[in-house]
């Protein structure tokens, strides 16, 4: 299946879950469960050929959407986490198939990956600033 379609589905489901949980303040469980239930009914009905895969992708991203606001403060964070979920889902389609919790594990790995990228970027930025300051002080001395 088209990987772009999988990533777009993941982004839509992840962001919807995040929005229901944090902006509408309905809680992570209700947000994820309602997105999962809706995707399980809607996708196979409207997309008979691809729906069975897309509903699983949406459920997987909805588990990622349960991330707390502390770890993903903005919708952009959620978009990036969901995109990683879509990508990982495509890569690991055959791994541990049939094991309950596989989708949540993909979601958790994606969250950690995005937090890692963010923290690395922050650390690199701090290092550049301190390097710039030390050089500036050197010039004045």
């Amino acid at each position: 299946m088209d990987i772009l379609l999988i990533i777009l589905t993941a982004i839509a489901a992840g962001v919807t879950t995040y929005f229901i949980a944090n902006n509408l303040k309905k809680g992570a469980v209700l947000a994820s469960a309602s997105v999962t239930l809706a995707s399980g009914i809607i996708f196979p009905y409207f997309f008979p050929t691809t729906g069975s895969t897309l509903m699983v992708v949406a459920a997987c991203a909805s588990y990622g959407g349960m991330v707390s606001r502390k770890n993903a403060p903005t919708i952009l964070d959620m978009v990036m986490i969901s995109a990683i979920i879509g990508l990982l889902f495509s890569i690991t389609a055959t791994s541990y198939a049939g094991v309950g919790g596989r989708l949540g594990t993909i979601a958790a790995i994606s969250c950690f990956a995005w937090l890692g990228v963010k923290n690395s970027a922050k650390a690199a930025s701090r290092a550049r600033k301190s390097d710039f300051l030390s050089k500036s002080v050197g010039i004045w001395q």
Partner: peptide, 21 residues
Amino acid sequence: IYAGIGGKGGTTAAAAALVTR
């Protein structure tokens, strides 16, 4: 452990399912 990480529940469930299997 890892409270607030999306997918923590799924990882917990996967561990339980694999141990049971």
